[in-house]
Amino acid sequence: MSELLRRYGLPLTTAMTLATLVWVVMMVVLPYFVMVEYSFHRNLTVTEIGGPRDVYTLENYASLFRGTDLTAWEFSDDFRVFLRTIWGSALVTFVCLVVCYPVAYYLALGTSKERAAFMLVLLVIPFWINEILRTFAWFILLAYNGPLNAVLQGMGIIDAPVRWLSGSGGVIIGMTYAFLLFMMFPLYNAIETLDRNQVEAARDLGASTWRVHWRVVVPHAKPGVAVGCIMVFVLAASSYIVPYLLGSPGTRWFTQTIYEWFFEASDWPRGAAYAFILLGLCVAFIMVMMRVFKVGLTDIAK
């Protein structure tokens, strides 16, 4: 603060501080505050406002679990969607990790810097196209009479067309594609800082390829793995457009449930409560990853 004062003088410092404050309050604090407030209200009619039912309550949060009986293995519809979102996002995260690790390793240590840069650009180019268009392209690719089935049939790998879009398969494929780079870059950045000599030293001491990765490369890449997993999981869990386009009625995502409570049931308090439950899930995942990979916030910020 004193540094700012010394450099820019009082008027400019005041202006900048105020602008930042306004931005933070208006754009960050207030909207969240309003939604938090909403989430603890009942969805009241106009006449009920100010009446005896207009009190703070946890009902909206509890309603996610209502009708769920774990002992009987019964779940409410919304809770089932919530669980599917967790499971699906975790699966997308895992698939992204498995797909990206070899590529990131190759780009970081297996090829020259120039070629790696060139290939990274090639990887990025498709992402200059709008996410909706890219997702829609997958909708076409995966269609029952689409090119993927045609190619697989032509090659004799499958006898009859596969309904890719009727289960969760389409959503998982689409999300893996959509969020691939959010895994690729943290992994690449982490592996890239590994001294090649470490890999050679491990090899020279007799380690097999598998063990070189397990004992040297992966431990070094841990912060990158953690960041990539966090990014992909959070993006997948909060994705709306991919499940909307590539999902089927049986594979709704929790974001769709939230949308429906807001705009189809017009129950904003419950929609807000669900949104915070999703936020809580993401925060919990981040904390679990930090604990599992023993990385701190500073490692992740890198």
Partner: peptide, 15 residues
């Protein structure tokens, strides 16, 4: 990894 040699690197390459 299968040769009876051990290499000491210029930068040592300790883990």
């Amino acid at each position: 990894n299968l040769r009876p040699t051990a290499l000491i690197f210029q930068n040592l390459a300790l883990f």
